[in-house]
Structures are given as structure tokens and as C-alpha cells.
Amino acid sequence: MKYSLNLEELKNIYLISNTAPFLIEKFKNDISLQYLRDAESISDLIDEFKAISKAEINSMEDVVYAYALYIAILLKRDDKVLEEFLKNEGNIKFEWFPEIKNIYFEKLRPTTISYIPLSPKVSNKNSHNNIRATSNDSEFQEIDIVC
């Protein structure tokens, strides 16, 4: 195991988890996992996950380490890199890996922001599209919004 994580605590969480959302929620709040997510680059985390996913699982600790890395990678929320990563590693069928992937797509994935170009429109200041906002409050200045 390349990275240092609070595996004893993470094992306790894994041990009592009944559902994947609970596991994610508790892992997300673990300080060692948050540190790992922030301190390491996504490519390093992916390299480590690829290495351990092909290695023999001998203990619960190995499983917990794999879950921790997987969740840390998804929490990076780098959509382009993750798309490539999940093409292969997204096929892992072990226990909660498929559901964690689904939860990423449904809830963790960053919302796509689309920029819609709008051309400015100039109208006559006295036309009916002219909206005037006023306030008696001295903090607010009278403004004109021209649609």
C-alpha cells in the first residue's frame, strides 16, 4: 500500500456499512481520505488503484484500501479523466463498486455548465421593455435595466 490512510477507522466503517451510500458518506468525511484526495494528483491515485486492482485481495484491509482510493479518485470530480478511468476500472463488479460508480454519475459528478451566447439588444429607453427598479433604501441606487 503506497498511501497512508486511517485504515483502522475505515475498516470499522466498512465493517458496519449496510449500503453503498452510507459507505461513501462516511468515507467522504474521513480526514485521511480527504487529505489523500487533496494532496495527490488524480493520475497518481489512478496509477495506484490500477496496481492494486490487479493484485491479490488477501484481507479486508485490501478491500477497504481499494474502496478508499476509488472514492478519493471519484471525489476529484475531474470528469474528463474519470470518463477514461471508468471505461476500464468502471467494469469492476465486486460488491459495491458498480453502485459507487452509479452514485458518482447520479450525485457526485459535477454539473455541466453550458455558456449560451446572447447578443446584446439595445432598445429605446422609453419603450415598454424598459424595467425600472427603485428603492427607498439609501443603500440602493436607482437602476435601469434595459431588456
Binding site: 486492482s53 490487479k54 493484485a55 463488479k93 465486486f94
Partner: peptide, 10 residues
Amino acid sequence: MNLFDYTGNK
């Protein structure tokens, strides 16, 4: 067994 060997939950 590694993570990829696992073909699905019983």
C-alpha cells in the same frame, strides 16, 4: 482473487 476476477455478486 483480484477485483477484476470477481464476475458478479452471488
